[in-house]
Design a protein around this nucleic acid. Structure first.
Lengths: 151, 151
DNA sequence: GATCATTTGTTCGTATACGAATGATGTTGC
DNA sequence: GCAACATCATTCGTATACGAACAAATGATC
């Protein structure tokens, strides 16, 4: 049925209106996956991207409260707690109550955490480079600028 | 130590070499997060981006094996199994052994799944539009082209 | 200074993610 | 036909993610 009805335009080829592979969400997911793969291979020590974000941010800004660290690293309060719990269990971070605010939990790097952050930073930079390797300098700049508008 | 050694260039201002917010991985994470937030608000039905990817792909290509569906939607075999299990429990997909290959588990949309996919597709397109709303047409095109190189 | 709203942190429940190990089934080479 | 290999699916363990509900501490307001 529906075959040869009219010579005018027949039935629409029924091209599905939604193509997953063309959607920005799916593309972002795949690009992130590729980056995560590169990260796992190159970071050297046993660290996830999230754990590294927390360590790097602590190294960058010094000790801060757990929730603030979560905001600085774009993590939910529940997520940052899990991350810090695991880093603390590994002796890379330590926590103490904030004397100035009884609600806050101050998070800081241990010496081991500091040393690891220093050791891993070059690898992390290499990961950034390798992720962007398919692009030339101008393309990299353009991409970052465009993504910045979508943050 | 190292203080006032030479008047030539003194001590480097110790600007940390690794700035989290400038790294492509962190930027990608934040952009993805914004997209996920838009998705959750706009998709209408109770669906995660991953679940929608599975439904949309099934609607696009018809029934296929669970692992192939996972590859088409960029999911690990363990992940796609969880997704299909939950979609099947909700009556949106169904599975059956492949008569041609005893290893395969054929996944297909139920009628309810089909109807939901049709109903959600416009919302999904709107999500894509809203995610890219901060960019004009040319910028959108450029961004997609650059991200495609990084997939 | 008592009340109310905010902030901080914890916990629970659900849903991705993915590496690794395992077992069942297919395919290929010989 | 069978041995080596690849593919498919399941399961386990660990680690994000995040909404929601909760309790403790703080701040704002009158």
């Amino acid at each position: 049925m529906g075959r040869g009805v009219s010579p005018k335009r027949a039935v629409k080829p029924a091209r599905p209106s939604y193509i997953l592979d063309e959607q920005i969400g799916f593309i972002l997911r795949q690009v992130w996956q590729r980056h995560a793969t590169i990260f796992a291979r190159e970071i050297g020590i046993n660290l996830t991207p999230t754990q590294w974000a927390a360590l790097a941010k602590l190294a960058e800004t010094g000790p801060c409260s757990q929730n603030l660290l979560g905001r600085l690293t774009a993590m939910d309060v529940a997520t940052i707690k899990g991350v810090i719990d695991r880093l603390t269990a590994r002796g890379l971070t330590e926590t103490s109550p904030d004397p100035e605010d009884g609600r806050r939990l101050l998070v800081s790097l241990t010496r081991a955490g500091q040393q690891l952050a220093e050791k891993a930073a070059p690898n992390a930079l290499a990961i950034t480079r390798e992720t962007l390797a398919p692009l030339d300098a101008k393309e990299r700049e353009t991409l970052i600028a465009l993504l910045d508008k979508l943050r």
